[in-house]
Write a protein that binds this DNA or RNA. Structure first.
Lengths: 183, 183
DNA sequence: ATGCATAGTATCAGTTTGATATATAAAAAC
DNA sequence: GTTTTTATATATCAAACTGATACTATGCAT
């Protein structure tokens, strides 16, 4: 399951251009499956070369032409193959956690700034969910609701953990012993 | 913060070979910052070329030679630069969530198998933490304890969410309406 | 005997990342 | 009133990463 498969999946919802798909990655998919122009355009080129999508060039006045892609029957079959993997991955790549492993090499001020920024980031992310009205939510496909709920739940879990345990990152050895004894 | 920086960080704990570092990625770092030979060896080669690490070839009987790397003063400075970024990333790339977005294109059996596998995977991951005795835990650096706790907390949160919400992935439209009404 | 695990090095094709280039128009900022 | 930013749309590139594979040699298990 790579960017190509996700593009095919997006096209089952109707024709779209590479630019449209980038928007879609930015607003939703990108939160758990990031992709930029550098992967989207090559993916569409490969899909077209293999006959999994077709495109039509649509001229526009005052704006660049659009290449509007449509999924083919062969593309639908390929998508089904992509969805038949019963052990899809779920990977994390976190500079944040790697950095925290080396917290003992950092100053308390540095650590606090990193933590504060991460909490702000999480708040900004959680705010996105406030805008989704319940009415619209019910019209969303089941899968999308599951995934949105997942994101919200995980983000608020992260926030809770960080808030409750940030203290241990900056506490001295003596404090550490005291904390362990008081437990 | 790339693989090079993490390698430098590992070397602050003492000299190590590329093979040793691969072990370290597999057992701990890899859970939140994956790296294989394909990134470790080129990283070490670049670090050596730039004088951030030095290495010594250690012959062994019956086994291939080891290249044992040591961090240099210049390497320590570079590491500090790497740790000075106050907004480190935390990215997720999830075939699992992407796939669940297209759950409406899948059969209930397919979805159930994917979910069951993901829950088994989470259980296997959570089991890793049972082996860490509390005594050893207290001797770990603060940062490592924070990160380990983070992983455990997030994994059990994921598990809870999936268990409690998997129903909505396979429920029919009528069930969906009934569930919404009963809420 | 044959396959697999461990110890160790390294490379390679295919992908992805993040930035950048190109072009025009409209909206916003100063 | 001019400059800057944002939006529309395409595409490419170096650097990095992924996942698999290759090579060598010992030992253990089936």
């Amino acid at each position: 399951m790579d960017v190509k498969t996700v593009c095919l999946g997006m096209l089952t919802d109707g024709p779209a251009s590479g630019y449209d798909m980038k928007k879609c990655f930015e607003s939703s998919f990108g939160h758990f499956f990031p992709a930029g122009y550098g992967s989207i355009y090559p993916a569409l080129a490969t899909l077209a070369r293999n006959g999994l999508v077709e495109f039509e060039e649509v001229p526009q006045e005052g704006k660049p032409d659009r290449k509007v892609y449509t999924i083919t029957e062969k593309g639908r079959e390929e998508l089904m193959k992509g969805l038949s993997n019963t052990s899809p991955t779920h990977k994390v790549r976190s500079e944040f956690l790697a950095m925290m492993c080396f917290a003992h090499l950092m100053s308390a001020e540095q650590i606090d700034e990193v933590i504060d920024n991460k909490l702000l980031e999480l708040d900004a992310f959680l705010k996105l969910f406030d805008d989704i009205p319940t009415g619209q939510c019910q019209s969303m496909p089941n899968g999308a609701r599951f995934v949105a709920g997942f994101g919200q739940f995980v983000a608020s879990s992260l926030k809770t953990y960080i808030e409750e345990h940030r203290g241990m990152l900056t506490e001295s050895d003596e404090e550490k012993i005291r904390a362990a004894a008081g437990r």
